[in-house]
Simulated scan of single mutants.
Amino acid sequence: MNRKDREQIDHCCESIVSKIDLTKLLPKLLENKVYNRDDVNIPRWSKNLGAQNTVKDVLLTIKTRGPNAFKNLILSLRQSNHEDVADILEKQNNASSNTNFRQENLLDHHIYSDEFFSEPLIIEAMKDIIKEFSKRDDLNKVDSCFVIVTSHGMEDEESNTEIQGTDYHIASRQANYEKVLCTEVCDYFTAEACPQLAEKPKIFIFQLCRGKKKQNGVIHSRITTDSCAMKSTNEANIEIPRIQTIRNYSDMLIVQSTLPGYVSYRDSKTGSWFIQILCKIFMKHAHENHVQDLFNMIDAELKNLRTTNHECQTSSVQSLGFNKHCYLNPGLFMES
């Protein structure tokens, strides 16, 4: 969706929410392919179609649904007897801004395509590419680094999460198959291996299965337990040595879409649960929340999703010396 249409939705959202009957509009949005029927948001929205917060969320999420979403939103509104709302949205937004800065979302410069082309993921080549990237001299000019791997995965015999590609099969594992562990990817970016990124935020995101186990939702009552207060140490007796070195494993945040040993769910049409929610949360909140809070928000939404068999998924975030708040502030730029 282009910037003008997204700005029009943002500008009109508050004024049109109360005019929309979602019980009439949502079926048309599904019929016109604005949303797929198995979209991860549908079960949550369906619980309270009459709430204005639900209507607002449906409208704002449309901004992430590709180049034809605005046109099909207008069509859906007219087909569901919301002509007045369609007219409001189609008017040009002539309001001018008096500020020198504008906050834009992460997708402003993202190129959408109706067709997606994919290349086979060859694990042997992947290791070389990541290693080569970690050695680049120009990394000393960047403030942070994101490494994102989406693939198949499994837990090996030593309970390590193993990334699998198209060159993986049972026979080759005993012959020329060279496995790649998530920990190996992170090892390329330690302070020793990649001094250009030393003491800079490094975020690793792995969207892949980590085993074959499936997590089931559990019915429970809310039971709390008392926690005992830990005894404080006498800090006055602790002597901190003044050594001018840095830790090798530091400033790393390792994010896994699921728990060790468990599968990671992926919709055959809309993609993985975790990545869908990640894109939504980063788009909406990355301009005002730090990275760790963003991943907390992602898991808060992930916990509401279930398969038809009530299976669910829990993401995992591991901090390796990542003890400062990292803000991305995407899209903040000076107006010309």
Rank of each mutant, 00 (worst) to 15 (best):
L278I: 07
M230I: 07
T99C: 02
K71T: 04
D156C: 02
Q318V: 06
P43I: 09
S315V: 01
K19V: 00
K47I: 04
E199Y: 09
E7F: 11
N309L: 09
L328G: 06
S118W: 06
L328H: 10
R306L: 15
A300T: 12
Y112E: 12
T245G: 05
V263P: 04
F116V: 08
S257V: 03
I205V: 13
T161K: 06
F206P: 00
S319G: 02
Y262S: 04
Q292M: 14
T23W: 10
Y35E: 13
V263A: 08
N248W: 00
I42L: 09
L121V: 06
Y188Q: 11
A95C: 10
S144R: 02
E104Q: 05
L121A: 08
K214E: 14
E157S: 10
T224F: 12
S268E: 15
F116N: 13
H325W: 04
N100V: 12
V149C: 02
F116L: 13
F101M: 10
A86Q: 09
Q313L: 01
F206L: 03
K179H: 09
T64P: 00
V317E: 14
I16A: 02
N237D: 15
N160P: 04
K24F: 07
D293G: 02
A229T: 14
V17D: 12
H220V: 05
I62F: 13
L59E: 15
R37N: 08
F282H: 02
Y327F: 15
G321T: 05
L77G: 10
S80H: 13
Q256T: 00
L181H: 00
K179Y: 00
S80L: 13
